[in-house]
Design a protein around this nucleic acid. Structure first.
Lengths: 113, 113
DNA sequence: ATTGTATATCGCAAATATACGATAAGTAAT
DNA sequence: ATTACTTATCGTATATTTGCGATATACAAT
């Protein structure tokens, strides 16, 4: 990016793109899946469940955390990560804008090109 | 990426990540919005609607096309791009996996961390 | 205090993504 | 055939992402 032209886009477009970017990696998708399947908070088995080094997983966790999709804290030996469903659902709702557009256009499932 | 470890992830995790990557940029979100709002196919006003050079927009269109989210063709002076709702909905459905997980866990909206 | 365990961070290398000017390629009209 | 117009592609510069070893940090148990 030569210049930062992010500001020329709408805020909700940027937000949606940032959310997409946060989940735009198989490792982060896998992490979210793992966390979503656990009722209680889960610690470092995430690393064991992924084909990546501990440092790399930690970095992915950091990214998910920085956008707010997951919350986490370390307490002694065990850490605790979990999905922030509040934030998660907020993004899903934003994503729904497109789902709705798809529905409105469902009559023309057959596109014109 | 030192090594390509994509193969160590599940196919649907990779597919979902690829979809997310495709829409992980404000310009591509904006393009999809523009296309979704048009009933008929739309041509080069996309460029005018974005704060980017024509070459850059063309590149973004190419990316959306390569993952199959949009279809396009040029006919003389006017081009024709439109969303492939078939593909679009397929991805939305995959994304729904997470939405469902969110629903299942809705009892615990208050996370444990 | 020392050891062991779990996690985060640093520093670097390699790969990708982004942007755009210049240019090519195609069509329509003159 | 030339001009005007639209879109795609090439080449290149820069920024960002990804991955991991090495190391730091923090706590628990001995």
């Amino acid at each position: 990016m030569a210049t930062n032209r992010k500001m020329d886009f709408l805020a909700d477009e940027i937000a949606l793109a940032d959310f997409a970017k946060a989940i735009a990696h198989p490792a982060r998708i896998a992490i979210l899946k793992i966390l979503a399947q656990q009722k209680s908070c889960i610690c470092g088995e995430i690393v064991e469940g992924l084909p990546l080094a501990q440092a790399t997983v930690s970095q992915h966790l950091k990214e998910l955390k920085s956008i707010g999709l997951i919350k986490g804290s370390i307490e002694g030996k065990t850490s605790c990560y979990c999905i922030d469903w509040e934030v998660f659902n907020q993004f899903v709702r934003q994503f729904g804008v497109f789902a709705d557009l798809a529905k409105n256009a469902s009559g023309q499932t057959q596109s014109c090109c």
